[in-house]
């Protein structure tokens, strides 16, 4: 049958759901081994974080899309968590190969890392369902017969950053590694993440209060203390 925007969206959703094991609500054995190899086991903090953010996400999704959609928000979150675990495992495998270490205690106990990774996974899920597609980005379905209408509301990026209380600059850090770690992401989703990346780089990271200003200041102060090379004669 000919490819229509709706069919394309349905295929993307099917692919996303198919790629994520239904048993993936818990960390896989491999991932659990990475956690156990840490100096400080991050498991309990991670589960607690997921519990809290799951409640916040479902509530905010319901507020944005419609009161009957809290359940839908919970379903999106569950898919997001599966993707979060899948990508985290791929990232750690690649880091193990690159650095020849198995103890990622510092990274895995970094709350910002987890929140960024989860936010990216949720953004991918919502974009797949057409709920976070930019107006120029093609299809924008997602409502269907559920009585929820995300097209009428604004769950577009950077909505997710506000929900999980994450700085755009920290979200930016995870995008490239996320795309590298999941080669099954569709072309449309990669394009969507690239648009998010550009929005951060061009606008959001420069808003008042951004951590970027403090980092630039530190970089400048550090740089000024360095020895300046004398010009060649």
């Amino acid at each position: 049958p000919p490819q229509t925007p709706i069919r394309a969206a349905m295929n993307s959703i099917q692919q996303l759901r198919g790629d994520l094991p239904s048993s993936g609500d818990q960390p896989s054995t491999n991932l659990a081994t990475y956690f156990k190899n840490c100096t400080v086991d991050p498991t309990q903090d991670m589960l607690k974080r997921l519990e809290t953010l799951g409640q916040v996400f479902s509530q905010r999704f319901g507020q944005a899309v419609g009161p009957r959609c809290v359940v839908l928000g919970r379903q999106r979150f569950t898919l997001g968590v599966r993707l979060y675990y899948k990508v985290m495992e791929a990232m750690l495998k690649s880091e193990e190969k690159r650095l020849s270490v198995q103890n990622f205690s510092k990274l895995l106990n970094d709350s910002t890392f987890h929140t960024s990774l989860l936010a990216c996974a949720l953004e991918v899920v919502m974009a797949t369902y057409g709920e976070s597609s930019f107006k120029t980005g093609g299809y924008n379905c997602g409502g269907g017969s559920s009585g929820c209408d995300p097209a009428e509301t604004n769950v577009c990026f950077p909505w997710i950053l506000d929900v999980v209380n994450l700085a755009a600059f920290d979200f930016y850090k995870v995008i490239e590694s996320f795309i590298k770690a999941d080669p099954t992401l569709s072309k449309d989703i990669v394009k969507h993440l690239e648009t998010c990346e550009n929005l951060i780089m061009e606008r959001i990271a420069w808003r008042t209060g951004s951590v970027l200003f403090e980092l630039l200041k530190q970089e400048h102060e550090g740089g000024a203390a360095e020895q300046i090379e004398t010009p060649a004669s």
Partner: peptide
Amino acid sequence: SHDYHFGLEDHEGISELFDCD
């Protein structure tokens, strides 16, 4: 299969980006 431009060097992984190396 997509046009994303990967800008990170091989020595830059997620650990470095979160200052955890």
